[in-house]
Amino acid sequence: MMSQTNKNNSRYIRYILLIFASLWVLWPISIMIEEGFRVDIGPAFSGRGASFVGEFFQGQGGIRFTTIEYVKALKVEAYPRLLVNSSIIAVSSVVVAILAGLPAGFTMAMYKFRGKTFITYALLAMRTISPFAVLLPFFLIYGRLGLFDTYQGMAFVYLIINLPIITMMMRGFFKDIPKEIFEAAFMSGASDSYILRKVALPLALPGLAAAAVFAFVGTWNEFFYALFLTGTVTKTVSRGVWSGFSESIESFKILEFDELNAGGTLAIIPAVILSLAVQRYLARGVTLGAAE
């Protein structure tokens, strides 16, 4: 009887903690969503609620709820264009990464060969490298080749993110298939490309979908390269969320905060939905399969 009560108590505590942790996760997001629904009435009351800057406490502003920022984001301003840009760049970059990474991942899963350590190391390095270590060469070369602020230039630079994800995740998915299946195929006289097309790929198709989605989200969320290499033509959503939907970079700070939040909300929706769809593979994606 006593232990039953204890058990129930610990269950309640656990649920309270779980709900508390969920609030912790959702709270900032809900603030962002809600901010997007607000607009400050006038400059005299700028800032929402109470606000602290340094030692100074600032008074309340008059606030009313409105969907205007969302409507503005989706209709009036260049926001839909950002979504389209991000999609074009991410999809084309992921497709190229699949074309290159799929056969490479297959070979790394199936064979031992000289240089495998190098490729693995290089892919890990691409995954972890500070963008500044490659940014300036890209900056100079893109300037020379006219690739600055172009779709193909952005799709190419994002291979740094996508190639390791696709190659290493696919390598892991191929490794998950019992190796005797491939040996049976070898012994049957099948060529590597036949095995890849008819045996390996059909079996790893859900994995490929997960890897592609994961790479897409990674590109969608990327900010750094977008900050330096995009301009008015190919500006992506994660950069646009930051710098505002109008083209003025400095105008967001106080004046456009609601807009920033409306844009941020819209930007994370596809990323969150896609990530939840592939949540089983999130850890594999982030660690390139090292954490297994």
């Binding site: 005797e180 299946i181 049976a184 195929a185 070898f186 012994m187 099948a190 060529s191």
Partner: peptide, 20 residues
């Protein structure tokens, strides 16, 4: 000589059939 060209067949403990 690669296993493809050895003119041998092999049967495995776990059957190794192509599930697709």
């Amino acid at each position: 000589v690669s296993p493809r060209e050895r003119d041998v067949s092999m049967v495995f403990q776990n059957f190794a059939l192509f599930p697709n």
